[in-house]
């Protein structure tokens, strides 16, 4: 069984995250890049599935500008067998549609049985790319999945949906996106860290892939920074404060 795990490097949520106001893109220089936590859970889930399968191979894949070697090294140290880094200056500012088209082309070349992704990144929070990749590949997609079990040629799990849960399954090959109920990532062992140095990391440019780019593209028209938060209205309760607050919530459409 071959498994591809998609990984996104994002600004650390513990730092101050910024947008570049001239492009509207994430300002990746202003904060420390880390593997998005949900992708660590995807890695853990994929490695757990791989351990219980015979002859399983796990490939970690990322599309990112610049240096992602530390993040890939961590994934390899956790137990992935190899890494693919899609890196091309012409992909700067790629929207969800183009990103999915490029990753789908790279996944297709891997001939994977299972693709693991996080359900949404902490920076973009779009939650679109896994479903888009599934559509490109003509595969079923189980989104926002937990309790993941692979049984022969079927993957099963429980989706988190608004107001409940849904037990679902799909035949392999399939794309799944994991939710936060999946276990935390394992710590790389010393042996894993040493072994990671010898594992292959392939860097691909756009020209190496057979990409069918979408015609429609999104463009950011403007980006504005919210001014530093300052104190608003403060009233001392004289018996009418609750009514004033209710009016405030209604006029701001918050109830």
């Amino acid at each position: 069984m071959k498994i591809v795990v998609l990984m996104k490097q994002v600004p650390d949520t513990w730092g101050d995250r910024r947008l570049d106001t001239s492009t509207g893109w994430v300002d990746r220089a202003s904060s420390d890049p880390v593997i998005d936590e949900i992708n660590e859970r995807a890695l853990e889930a994929a490695l757990t599935v791989a351990e219980s399968a015979k002859d399983a191979e796990v490939v970690v894949m990322t599309m990112a500008p610049g240096d992602v070697s530390e993040s890939l090294k961590k994934a390899l140290a956790m137990g992935c067998d190899s890494a693919v880094h899609i890196c091309d200056d012409s992909l700067a500012g790629a929207d969800a549609g183009l990103t999915a088209a490029v990753i789908a082309a790279a996944v297709r070349a891997q001939d994977a049985d299972l693709v693991f992704a996080g359900n949404e990144s902490t920076d973009g929070r779009g939650g679109l790319v896994p479903a888009m990749i599934a559509e490109y590949l003509g595969l079923p997609h189980l989104g926002t999945l937990g309790d993941i079990v692979v049984d022969g040629s079927t993957v099963r799990g429980v989706r988190r949906i608004d107001g409940g849960t849904q037990a679902v399954h799909a035949s392999l090959p399939a794309v799944i996106s994991v939710n936060e109920s999946n276990p935390d990532a394992r710590f790389p062992s010393f042996k894993g860290i040493m072994g990671a140095k010898k594992k292959p990391v392939v860097t691909l440019a756009l020209a190496d892939l057979d990409v069918t780019a979408p015609a429609g593209r999104s463009a950011v028209l403007s980006t504005t920074v919210r001014p530093a938060r300052s104190a608003g209205t403060v009233v001392t309760d004289d018996g009418t404060a609750a009514e004033q607050l209710a009016d405030f919530l209604v006029s701001n459409r918050l109830v």
Binding site: A96, G97, G126, L128, M132, H141, R160, I161, A215, G216
Partner: peptide, 23 residues
């Protein structure tokens, strides 16, 4: 912009060779 809504939007966008303005 629900869980299913985003997945539907993503798949539809690929089919129509376009993309999604999300959330």
């Amino acid at each position: 912009n629900s869980g299913d809504g985003r997945e539907i939007a993503g798949r539809l966008a690929v089919r129509r060779r376009t993309t999604v303005l999300v959330d």
